[in-house]
């Protein structure tokens, strides 16, 4: 396949290379029925890095991060997070790992029977088992302030706009201070201005909480703002990777198709 595995520029020698590897994926495969969604995924993510995975809808971008967090079990390959093989983890070990990983769903996935405050208190009381109400209130207010939703603290999710739901979802994920953040299409369904605000928020939160992130998107503006490194996915494989600017010069037609509207 001529489109495969050519890099737009030599992989950047950033400081990340010498840092700790937090996610390591080798030859990952996953099928649903007779459809091979992930054919051969290889990816290394270093601590503090923001990796954006670009790809068309239905290419299996979300499946990769669902495997990372143990929602799906890969059929073959190696998937290590903090050096631990995720598919081999026992229930208790997986739960401990999940506390270190934040997952922002496309819809925000707020618990719709609870207010924003209760949504944020939920992981604090159920996952971190914090009992001190003053500590809970402090953390809730601090993280809501950070995402600009302090005024919506007692609102129900049904009273929030799409952008506010994403912010609240992000706040709920960040409140347990995860080391890794996985974003599943964080700007889908939002207007361009709100999309930009969310993208900038992701970047600011990454700096503030010093997280390592994988951002699944097909929003080029989001990729431009947030990415340290961009990986392009097509037909179940990562076909090219590099910096956002570097990939703009790629000769690969599939990669070009992502960048043609912004160049």
């Amino acid at each position: 396949m001529e489109e495969k595995a050519t890099t737009a520029e030599p992989k950047e020698k950033k400081t990340h290379d010498k840092q700790e590897v937090v996610i390591e994926i080798k030859h990952l495969k996953k099928s649903f029925g007779n459809k091979d969604v992930l054919k051969d995924i290889n990816l290394v993510v270093h601590r503090g890095e923001n990796v954006v995975v670009l790809g068309k809808s239905g290419q299996g971008k979300s499946v990769t991060i669902q495997c990372i967090v143990g929602m799906l079990t890969p059929d073959d390959g190696t998937l290590k997070v903090f050096g631990e093989e995720v598919p081999g983890l026992k229930e208790k070990e997986l739960k401990e790992l999940r506390i270190k990983i934040g997952f922002l769903f496309q819809s925000g996935a707020l618990y719709d029977s609870m207010t924003v405050r209760e949504n944020l208190e939920f992981p604090l009381t159920r996952v971190l088992k914090i009992k001190d109400q003053a500590e809970i209130d402090k953390r809730v207010e601090e993280v809501l302030e950070g995402v600009g939703l302090a005024d919506a603290i007692d609102k129900m999710p049904s009273d929030l706009s799409g952008g506010m739901r994403k912010r609240a979802g992000l706040a709920r994920t960040l409140i347990i201070k995860p080391e890794i953040m996985l974003y599943d299409e964080p700007t889908t369904g939002l207007d361009p201005i709100t999309s930009r605000e969310i993208s900038e928020l992701i970047l600011n939160m990454q700096k503030k909480y010093k997280t390592t992130s994988i951002i699944i998107t097909h929003d080029m503006e989001c990729a431009r703002i947030t990415a340290d490194r961009v990986v392009v996915m097509n037909d179940g494989e990562y076909i090219e990777e590099g910096s956002f600017d570097g990939l703009q010069k790629s000769k690969n037609k599939i990669v070009q198709s992502f960048f043609k509207d912004i160049s």
Binding site: G70, F105, A109, Y111, D112, F122, R126, V127, T173
Partner: peptide, 21 residues
């Protein structure tokens, strides 16, 4: 409806126990 809107998945991946709650 919680499953369709990914609320069950969100609870699960956060490390909380949806079965217990």
């Amino acid at each position: 409806s919680m499953k369709v809107t990914e609320q069950l998945d969100a609870m699960d991946v956060s490390g909380a126990n949806p079965l217990q709650y």
